[in-house]
Computed example of a mutant assay.
Amino acid sequence: MTVFDKPSLSQRLKPWFSGFDLPLLLAIAWMMGLGLICMYSAGYDHGTRFVDHSRNMLISVALIFFVAQIPPQRIMQLAIPLYTVGVLLLIATALFGITKKGATRWLNIGITQIQPSEILKIATPLMLAWWFQKREGLLRLPDFIAAFVLLAVPVLLVAKQPDLGTSILVFSAGFFVIFFAGMSWKLIIPAFMVGAIGITTLVLSEEKICQPEVEWLVLREYQKNRVCTLLDPNKDPLGKGFHIIQGEIAIGSGGIHGKGFMKGTQTHLEFIPERTTDFIFAAFGEEFGLLGALALLAGFTALILRGLMIASEAPTLFSRLMAGAVTLSFFVYVFVNMGMVSGILPVVGVPLPFISYGGTAMVTLGLGLGLLMSIAKTRRPRY
Rank of each mutant, 00 (worst) to 15 (best):
T2D: 11
V3Q: 14
P7V: 08
S8K: 12
S10A: 11
S10N: 10
W16Q: 12
F20V: 13
A29W: 05
M39C: 06
Y40V: 05
Y44F: 08
Y44A: 15
T48F: 02
R49D: 15
F50N: 01
S54F: 15
Q73T: 00
L78Q: 00
A92F: 08
F96G: 13
G97Q: 10
K100R: 13
T104F: 04
I111M: 14
T112R: 14
E118Y: 15
L120A: 10
K121F: 00
A123R: 02
W131K: 05
F132K: 00
D143C: 10
F148P: 09
V149N: 06
V153P: 03
V155L: 01
L156G: 14
L156N: 09
A159M: 14
K160T: 04
G174K: 06
G182E: 08
W185D: 14
L204D: 11
S205L: 13
E215M: 07
R220K: 15
Q223E: 13
K240F: 06
K240Y: 03
I245G: 01
A250S: 13
A250G: 04
I251W: 12
I256L: 15
G260P: 06
G264S: 10
P273H: 14
T276R: 03
D278F: 10
F281I: 04
F284C: 01
F300N: 01
L305N: 09
G307V: 07
I310A: 03
S312K: 10
P315E: 12
F318I: 01
L328H: 02
S329K: 00
F335K: 05
N337V: 04
V347S: 05
G349N: 11
G349I: 04
V350R: 03
P353T: 09
F354N: 09
G359A: 10
T360L: 13
L365I: 07
L365E: 08
L369I: 06
G370W: 06
G370L: 05
L371G: 00
L372I: 09
M373E: 08
I375C: 01
T378L: 00
R380W: 15
Y383S: 10
Y383F: 11
